[in-house]
Design a protein around this nucleic acid. Sequence first.
DNA 1: CTGTGTGCAAACACTTTGCAGGTGT
DNA 2: ACACCTGCAAAGTGTTTGCACACAG
Lengths: 142, 142
Amino acid sequence: MDVEKMLSAAKLRNTHQRKVVLQLLIEKGSPLSHSEISSILTEPLDKVTLYRTLQTLTDAGIAHQVQGLDGAWRFCAHDPDSEGCPGDHPHFLCLHCGKMFCLTNQRLPRIEVTEGMSVEGKQLVVYGCCSECKTETEDKLK
Amino acid sequence: MDVEKMLSAAKLRNTHQRKVVLQLLIEKGSPLSHSEISSILTEPLDKVTLYRTLQTLTDAGIAHQVQGLDGAWRFCAHDPDSEGCPGDHPHFLCLHCGKMFCLTNQRLPRIEVTEGMSVEGKQLVVYGCCSECKTETEDKLK
DNA sequence: CTGTGTGCAAACACTTTGCAGGTGT
DNA sequence: ACACCTGCAAAGTGTTTGCACACAG
Protein backbone atom coordinates (compact mmCIF):
# COMPACT_ATOMS: atom_id res chain seq x y z
CA MET A 1 0.00 0.00 0.00
CA ASP A 2 1.39 3.41 -0.78
CA VAL A 3 1.95 6.17 1.69
CA GLU A 4 -0.97 8.36 0.67
CA LYS A 5 -3.45 5.54 0.90
CA MET A 6 -2.15 4.56 4.30
CA LEU A 7 -2.64 8.08 5.61
CA SER A 8 -6.10 8.38 4.12
CA ALA A 9 -7.08 4.98 5.46
CA ALA A 10 -6.06 6.17 8.91
CA LYS A 11 -8.16 9.31 8.42
CA LEU A 12 -5.12 11.56 8.50
CA ARG A 13 -4.41 14.52 6.28
CA ASN A 14 -1.95 13.94 3.48
CA THR A 15 0.62 16.53 4.39
CA HIS A 16 4.05 16.58 2.85
CA GLN A 17 5.83 16.06 6.17
CA ARG A 18 3.80 13.01 7.09
CA LYS A 19 4.37 11.41 3.73
CA VAL A 20 8.12 11.94 3.98
CA VAL A 21 8.38 10.50 7.48
CA LEU A 22 6.12 7.55 6.81
CA GLN A 23 7.93 6.80 3.56
CA LEU A 24 11.24 6.77 5.38
CA LEU A 25 9.99 4.46 8.11
CA ILE A 26 8.64 2.03 5.53
CA GLU A 27 11.82 2.07 3.47
CA LYS A 28 14.06 1.43 6.42
CA GLY A 29 11.83 -1.23 7.91
CA SER A 30 13.55 -1.02 11.28
CA PRO A 31 12.65 1.23 14.21
CA LEU A 32 14.24 4.66 14.01
CA SER A 33 14.69 7.24 16.73
CA HIS A 34 13.94 10.96 16.38
CA SER A 35 17.58 11.79 15.93
CA GLU A 36 18.13 9.06 13.38
CA ILE A 37 15.17 10.26 11.36
CA SER A 38 16.21 13.88 11.31
CA SER A 39 19.77 13.02 10.38
CA ILE A 40 18.67 10.78 7.52
CA LEU A 41 16.18 13.23 6.05
CA THR A 42 17.69 15.40 3.38
CA GLU A 43 15.16 18.18 3.66
CA PRO A 44 14.83 20.04 6.97
CA LEU A 45 11.95 19.07 9.23
CA ASP A 46 11.21 20.95 12.40
CA LYS A 47 11.87 18.75 15.41
CA VAL A 48 8.58 19.67 17.01
CA THR A 49 6.73 18.63 13.88
CA LEU A 50 8.63 15.38 13.90
CA TYR A 51 7.61 14.67 17.47
CA ARG A 52 3.99 15.38 16.67
CA THR A 53 4.04 13.48 13.40
CA LEU A 54 5.43 10.35 15.01
CA GLN A 55 2.92 10.62 17.81
CA THR A 56 0.11 11.00 15.29
CA LEU A 57 1.23 8.01 13.26
CA THR A 58 1.48 5.89 16.39
CA ASP A 59 -1.94 6.95 17.65
CA ALA A 60 -3.39 6.17 14.26
CA GLY A 61 -1.94 2.67 14.42
CA ILE A 62 0.25 3.08 11.35
CA ALA A 63 3.42 2.89 13.41
CA HIS A 64 4.48 1.33 16.67
CA GLN A 65 7.03 2.59 19.14
CA VAL A 66 9.59 0.82 21.26
CA GLN A 67 12.04 2.14 23.72
CA GLY A 68 15.70 1.29 23.57
CA LEU A 69 17.78 0.90 26.70
CA ASP A 70 19.26 4.28 25.89
CA GLY A 71 15.90 5.84 26.65
CA ALA A 72 15.19 6.91 23.10
CA TRP A 73 11.91 5.96 21.49
CA ARG A 74 12.13 4.30 18.10
CA PHE A 75 9.31 4.25 15.64
CA CYS A 76 8.57 1.67 13.00
CA ALA A 77 5.90 1.74 10.33
CA HIS A 78 3.49 -1.11 10.52
CA ASP A 79 2.51 -2.70 7.27
CA PRO A 80 -1.30 -2.58 7.22
CA ASP A 81 -1.47 -5.65 5.01
CA SER A 82 0.31 -7.93 7.47
CA GLU A 83 -1.61 -9.81 10.13
CA GLY A 84 -0.91 -9.62 13.86
CA CYS A 85 -1.04 -6.64 16.15
CA PRO A 86 1.57 -3.95 15.59
CA GLY A 87 4.69 -4.27 17.61
CA ASP A 88 3.87 -7.74 18.92
CA HIS A 89 7.37 -9.05 18.41
CA PRO A 90 10.71 -8.76 20.20
CA HIS A 91 13.12 -5.99 19.23
CA PHE A 92 16.86 -6.25 19.09
CA LEU A 93 18.98 -3.27 20.06
CA CYS A 94 22.66 -3.06 19.18
CA LEU A 95 24.50 -1.39 22.04
CA HIS A 96 27.39 -0.49 19.74
CA CYS A 97 25.76 1.26 16.81
CA GLY A 98 22.39 1.91 18.45
CA LYS A 99 20.46 0.38 15.58
CA MET A 100 17.29 -1.51 16.34
CA PHE A 101 15.77 -4.47 14.52
CA CYS A 102 12.33 -6.02 14.59
CA LEU A 103 12.43 -9.75 15.21
CA THR A 104 9.24 -10.29 13.30
CA ASN A 105 9.67 -14.04 13.03
CA GLN A 106 8.28 -14.57 16.52
CA ARG A 107 5.50 -13.36 18.79
CA LEU A 108 5.85 -12.09 22.31
CA PRO A 109 5.31 -14.76 24.96
CA ARG A 110 2.29 -14.90 27.16
CA ILE A 111 3.09 -13.52 30.61
CA GLU A 112 1.37 -14.63 33.77
CA VAL A 113 0.66 -11.58 35.88
CA THR A 114 -0.44 -11.42 39.46
CA GLU A 115 -4.16 -11.85 40.12
CA GLY A 116 -6.03 -8.60 39.62
CA MET A 117 -3.70 -6.95 37.15
CA SER A 118 -4.93 -6.31 33.64
CA VAL A 119 -2.51 -6.34 30.74
CA GLU A 120 -2.78 -3.76 27.98
CA GLY A 121 0.43 -4.54 26.16
CA LYS A 122 4.03 -5.58 26.49
CA GLN A 123 7.39 -4.91 24.98
CA LEU A 124 10.50 -7.02 24.88
CA VAL A 125 13.91 -5.62 24.03
CA VAL A 126 16.88 -7.88 23.50
CA TYR A 127 20.21 -6.11 23.46
CA GLY A 128 23.70 -7.01 22.46
CA CYS A 129 25.85 -6.66 19.38
CA CYS A 130 24.51 -6.86 15.86
CA SER A 131 26.20 -8.88 13.15
CA GLU A 132 27.54 -5.80 11.40
CA CYS A 133 29.26 -4.42 14.49
CA LYS A 134 30.53 -7.85 15.40
CA THR A 135 32.19 -8.27 12.02
CA GLU A 136 33.74 -4.85 12.33
CA THR A 137 35.19 -5.60 15.74
CA GLU A 138 36.59 -8.90 14.55
CA ASP A 139 38.11 -7.24 11.51
CA LYS A 140 39.95 -4.77 13.70
CA LEU A 141 41.49 -7.56 15.72
CA LYS A 142 43.03 -9.11 12.65
CA MET B 1 22.20 -10.02 54.40
CA ASP B 2 22.36 -6.54 55.82
CA VAL B 3 23.10 -3.41 53.88
CA GLU B 4 26.64 -2.86 55.13
CA LYS B 5 27.69 -6.38 54.31
CA MET B 6 26.20 -6.09 50.83
CA LEU B 7 28.17 -2.95 50.14
CA SER B 8 31.38 -4.41 51.49
CA ALA B 9 30.87 -7.60 49.52
CA ALA B 10 30.56 -5.48 46.39
CA LYS B 11 33.78 -3.68 47.32
CA LEU B 12 31.99 -0.37 47.79
CA ARG B 13 32.54 2.16 50.53
CA ASN B 14 29.99 2.17 53.30
CA THR B 15 28.76 5.72 53.00
CA HIS B 16 25.63 6.91 54.69
CA GLN B 17 23.90 7.80 51.42
CA ARG B 18 24.48 4.41 49.88
CA LYS B 19 23.18 2.62 52.92
CA VAL B 20 20.02 4.71 52.96
CA VAL B 21 19.27 4.19 49.26
CA LEU B 22 20.04 0.49 49.29
CA GLN B 23 18.00 0.00 52.44
CA LEU B 24 15.04 1.70 50.81
CA LEU B 25 15.27 -0.39 47.65
CA ILE B 26 15.38 -3.58 49.69
CA GLU B 27 12.46 -2.57 51.89
CA LYS B 28 10.25 -1.66 48.95
CA GLY B 29 11.17 -4.69 46.92
CA SER B 30 9.81 -3.18 43.72
CA PRO B 31 11.67 -1.05 41.19
CA LEU B 32 11.68 2.64 42.07
CA SER B 33 12.46 5.60 39.88
CA HIS B 34 14.71 8.52 40.84
CA SER B 35 11.75 10.73 41.61
CA GLU B 36 10.00 8.07 43.67
CA ILE B 37 13.12 7.53 45.73
CA SER B 38 13.73 11.16 46.46
CA SER B 39 10.10 11.75 47.39
CA ILE B 40 10.05 8.78 49.76
CA LEU B 41 13.30 9.62 51.53
CA THR B 42 12.77 11.72 54.64
CA GLU B 43 16.24 13.15 54.73
CA PRO B 44 17.44 15.27 51.82
CA LEU B 45 19.71 13.59 49.31
CA ASP B 46 21.30 15.52 46.50
CA LYS B 47 19.84 14.43 43.17
CA VAL B 48 23.25 14.13 41.58
CA THR B 49 24.40 11.88 44.38
CA LEU B 50 21.30 9.78 43.87
CA TYR B 51 22.05 9.36 40.18
CA ARG B 52 25.59 8.34 40.91
CA THR B 53 24.65 6.08 43.78
CA LEU B 54 22.11 4.18 41.70
CA GLN B 55 24.60 3.86 38.87
CA THR B 56 27.20 2.56 41.27
CA LEU B 57 24.85 0.01 42.80
CA THR B 58 23.85 -1.20 39.35
CA ASP B 59 27.43 -1.47 38.14
CA ALA B 60 28.31 -3.40 41.26
CA GLY B 61 25.52 -5.86 40.55
CA ILE B 62 23.62 -5.14 43.76
CA ALA B 63 20.73 -3.60 41.86
CA HIS B 64 19.22 -3.97 38.43
CA GLN B 65 17.53 -1.34 36.33
CA VAL B 66 14.53 -1.46 34.05
CA GLN B 67 12.96 1.19 31.96
CA GLY B 68 9.28 1.95 32.10
CA LEU B 69 7.35 3.03 29.04
CA ASP B 70 7.43 6.52 30.50
CA GLY B 71 11.17 6.56 29.89
CA ALA B 72 12.11 6.64 33.55
CA TRP B 73 14.62 4.13 34.82
CA ARG B 74 13.60 2.15 37.88
CA PHE B 75 16.06 0.50 40.17
CA CYS B 76 15.55 -2.58 42.28
CA ALA B 77 17.91 -4.12 44.80
CA HIS B 78 18.90 -7.63 44.00
CA ASP B 79 19.00 -10.05 46.90
CA PRO B 80 22.49 -11.56 46.74
CA ASP B 81 21.26 -14.75 48.43
CA SER B 82 18.75 -15.56 45.70
CA GLU B 83 19.72 -17.58 42.68
CA GLY B 84 19.30 -16.48 39.04
CA CYS B 85 20.79 -13.49 37.33
CA PRO B 86 19.54 -10.08 38.46
CA GLY B 87 16.62 -8.71 36.55
CA ASP B 88 15.96 -11.89 34.62
CA HIS B 89 12.20 -11.66 35.05
CA PRO B 90 9.38 -9.68 33.45
CA HIS B 91 8.36 -6.36 35.00
CA PHE B 92 4.84 -5.04 35.23
CA LEU B 93 4.24 -1.31 34.88
CA CYS B 94 0.98 0.29 35.92
CA LEU B 95 0.12 3.05 33.48
CA HIS B 96 -2.18 4.69 36.01
CA CYS B 97 -0.09 5.03 39.14
CA GLY B 98 3.31 4.45 37.51
CA LYS B 99 4.29 1.77 40.00
CA MET B 100 6.38 -1.11 38.79
CA PHE B 101 6.42 -4.69 40.02
CA CYS B 102 8.87 -7.53 39.52
CA LEU B 103 7.21 -10.70 38.27
CA THR B 104 9.80 -12.87 39.92
CA ASN B 105 7.80 -16.04 39.56
CA GLN B 106 8.97 -16.50 35.98
CA ARG B 107 12.05 -16.22 33.84
CA LEU B 108 12.42 -14.34 30.60
CA PRO B 109 11.88 -16.47 27.51
CA ARG B 110 14.65 -17.50 25.21
CA ILE B 111 14.63 -15.34 22.09
CA GLU B 112 15.85 -16.51 18.71
CA VAL B 113 17.88 -13.75 17.14
CA THR B 114 19.08 -13.43 13.60
CA GLU B 115 22.28 -15.29 12.73
CA GLY B 116 25.33 -13.29 13.73
CA MET B 117 23.83 -11.26 16.55
CA SER B 118 25.09 -11.83 20.06
CA VAL B 119 22.76 -11.32 22.99
CA GLU B 120 23.99 -9.65 26.15
CA GLY B 121 20.68 -9.26 27.91
CA LYS B 122 17.01 -8.58 27.55
CA GLN B 123 14.19 -6.84 29.29
CA LEU B 124 10.47 -7.42 29.15
CA VAL B 125 7.96 -4.87 30.35
CA VAL B 126 4.29 -5.71 30.61
CA TYR B 127 2.05 -2.72 31.08
CA GLY B 128 -1.54 -2.20 32.05
CA CYS B 129 -3.46 -1.51 35.22
CA CYS B 130 -2.45 -2.86 38.61
CA SER B 131 -4.97 -4.42 40.99
CA GLU B 132 -4.93 -1.41 43.30
CA CYS B 133 -5.77 1.09 40.56
CA LYS B 134 -8.34 -1.27 39.10
CA THR B 135 -10.17 -1.50 42.41
CA GLU B 136 -10.08 2.25 42.77
CA THR B 137 -11.55 2.80 39.33
CA GLU B 138 -14.27 0.27 39.96
CA ASP B 139 -15.10 1.87 43.28
CA LYS B 140 -15.58 5.24 41.64
CA LEU B 141 -18.07 3.81 39.18
CA LYS B 142 -20.26 2.54 41.98
C1' DC C 1 46.94 10.59 54.75
C1' DT C 2 45.00 9.45 50.26
C1' DG C 3 41.65 8.64 47.17
C1' DT C 4 36.89 8.24 46.67
C1' DG C 5 32.21 10.26 47.49
C1' DT C 6 29.20 14.22 48.12
C1' DG C 7 26.87 18.56 47.31
C1' DC C 8 26.33 22.66 44.75
C1' DA C 9 26.16 25.25 40.38
C1' DA C 10 25.91 25.26 35.82
C1' DA C 11 25.73 23.17 31.42
C1' DC C 12 23.30 20.05 28.48
C1' DA C 13 19.90 17.29 26.06
C1' DC C 14 15.40 16.07 25.29
C1' DT C 15 10.49 16.99 25.15
C1' DT C 16 6.36 19.82 25.57
C1' DT C 17 3.52 24.05 25.16
C1' DG C 18 1.67 28.43 23.03
C1' DC C 19 0.77 30.86 19.25
C1' DA C 20 0.71 32.98 14.50
C1' DG C 21 0.64 31.85 9.93
C1' DG C 22 0.14 28.16 6.24
C1' DT C 23 -2.19 24.16 4.08
C1' DG C 24 -5.41 20.21 3.05
C1' DT C 25 -10.12 19.02 2.23
C1' DA D 1 -13.98 28.67 4.61
C1' DC D 2 -12.68 26.05 8.32
C1' DA D 3 -10.20 23.13 10.88
C1' DC D 4 -6.09 21.08 11.25
C1' DC D 5 -0.95 21.21 10.67
C1' DT D 6 3.56 23.38 10.78
C1' DG D 7 7.42 26.09 12.37
C1' DC D 8 9.45 29.11 15.60
C1' DA D 9 10.32 30.60 20.35
C1' DA D 10 10.31 29.63 24.91
C1' DA D 11 9.46 27.01 28.89
C1' DG D 12 9.84 22.68 31.33
C1' DT D 13 11.99 18.39 32.78
C1' DG D 14 15.45 15.08 33.42
C1' DT D 15 20.41 14.04 33.31
C1' DT D 16 25.39 14.99 33.16
C1' DT D 17 29.75 17.55 34.14
C1' DG D 18 33.23 20.28 36.88
C1' DC D 19 35.00 21.40 41.02
C1' DA D 20 35.92 22.22 46.06
C1' DC D 21 35.21 20.17 50.34
C1' DA D 22 34.16 16.01 53.36
C1' DC D 23 34.73 11.47 54.70
C1' DA D 24 35.86 6.24 54.69
C1' DG D 25 39.45 3.16 54.91
